[in-house]
């Protein structure tokens, strides 16, 4: 479903973030990308989400060339396929929980009923509905994350990308996230989690753990369950 072929990314300041990456993720798989800070995990996620273009190589999602999409279509592609849980959540702090979650749906101009259904669905699923009117800047870290997850799922995407999802969470909340991950996996989402949190490395429902080092893939270990 997701394929990276000979992908390299060199940033404007000549930092080589990725070097000749080959990677394949099948539909419904849960893949953990691990590696130290600066190894290029976030860069891979951005490439798959189409918010970044590779310097060379090709990114294919559902056989579509994501890397070559013009801006207009890459937005459309994200809207239809991708739920991105960002490293720092990237919520809009001055909007309320439900306003944040609704944002991906705004350009679609759905009717009121359909919109409300979608919102209630994800807010219930990620237990944030009790805070729906609260401004995001007044939420706790865990609540912010659940809001971000709800927003990533509101358009019912096939692919979920999560960047350091537990970096700002304590032990208990991290475990909660693992449960959410399990739930998403059971919904047959294709999931890639970038993290260096050891908590993820030997979960029984993870399909692959891929280690990165200096912009290269170190090894792929298949977790047997």
């Amino acid at each position: 479903m997701i394929q990276l072929k000979h992908v390299s990314k060199v940033y404007d300041n000549n930092i080589v973030a990725l070097e000749n990456i080959d990677l394949e993720v099948k539909e419904g798989e849960l893949v953990i990308l691990k590696g130290v800070s600066g190894s290029g995990k976030s860069t891979i996620l951005s490439l798959i989400a189409g918010v970044l273009k590779p310097t060379s190589g090709d990114v294919l999602v559902d056989k579509k060339h994501i890397a070559k999409l013009p801006d207009h279509f890459s937005s459309q592609y994200r809207r239809d396929n991708i739920g991105f849980i960002f490293q720092k959540y990237n919520l809009i702090p001055t909007l309320s929980v439900w306003e944040n979650i609704m944002l991906p749906l705004v350009p679609l101009n759905l009717d009121e009923k359909e919109l409300q259904e979608k919102l209630m669905h994800v807010m219930n699923m990620f237990t944030i509905v009790h805070k729906k009117e609260v401004l995001v800047k007044k939420l706790s870290g865990g609540e912010q994350q659940r809001t971000a997850i709800a927003r990533a799922n509101v358009n019912n995407p096939k692919i979920i990308l999560a960047d350091e999802p537990t970096a700002n969470l304590d032990q208990k909340l991290s475990c909660e996230f693992i449960q959410i991950l399990k739930k998403l996996k059971s919904l047959h989402k294709t999931i890639i989690v970038a993290t260096h949190d050891p908590l993820f490395f030997d979960l029984d429902f993870v399909d692959k753990v891929i280690e990165m080092h200096n912009g290269k893939l170190q090894r792929q270990s298949v977790v047997c369950s």
Partner: peptide, 12 residues
């Protein structure tokens, strides 16, 4: 930037 990353087009 956030709006674009969650699927808004430039025109939106």
């Amino acid at each position: 930037a956030i709006l674009k990353a969650i699927g808004w087009k430039i025109e939106d």
